[in-house]
């Protein structure tokens, strides 16, 4: 089937098999391997991306379902272009906050958590620790014990607030 979608702001169009999972589409057709696959049954959350700004599990969707829609992956968060050197200064506030809080270890589940957290903080810019725990509870992480992920998301809320409410709305991501 032929689909046309926008991925991280860039147009993509081409033929895909109807059964091709969105996760496999992003990784092998678009070449964005930052979206990781941990369980392929929608539990671990590692493959979470945003579809029109809302988090979805890329392993539970088919590529054909994103026809005409906008997909954002972890590669779309930071400012730098693919191929360019990237530094801490280039990171999106949610990425920077996880870095500062040591909210990642092996980093395999991290892209999915970032995509959930970014959307969550748009909806709830001043969350409590309990709300953060609830928000990331759809993600399995075996390394961190979640402690520093929760601290990282709380830190992200502070960084986003300091940057001003207008700086990170949908159009400016």
């Amino acid at each position: 089937m032929r689909i046309a979608a926008r991925v991280n702001g860039l147009a993509w169009s081409g033929e895909v098999e109807p059964r091709l999972l969105l996760s496999d589409f992003l990784r092998s057709e678009v070449g964005l391997t930052g979206t990781h696959v941990g369980c392929e049954h929608g539990v671990c959350g590692a493959c979470t991306v945003q579809l029109d700004g809302e988090p979805v599990r890329a392993c539970l969707m088919f590529a054909v379902q994103v026809d005409g829609r906008e997909v954002t992956t972890v590669e779309g968060l930071a400012e730098a272009q693919p191929g360019e050197a990237i530094t801490v200064e280039d990171l999106h506030p949610v990425q920077r906050a996880l870095h500062e809080a040591h909210g990642l270890q092996c980093g395999f589940c991290t892209p999915g958590i970032l995509m959930t957290a970014e959307a969550f903080l748009r909806d709830n810019p001043t969350p409590s620790r309990e709300e953060i725990r609830e928000a990331v509870s759809g993600h399995l992480c075996r390394c961190t014990g979640y402690h520093n992920i929760v601290e990282g998301v709380a830190r992200a809320a502070e960084l986003l607030a300091a940057d001003g409410p207008a700086a990170h709305d949908d159009d400016d991501r």
Partner: peptide, 21 residues
Amino acid sequence: VPRNEDVRLLTGRAQFVEDVE
């Protein structure tokens, strides 16, 4: 010391085996 490896991991650029093709 914040970690040297984080930027690559946070931006989806770190290479895992499944990313090799």
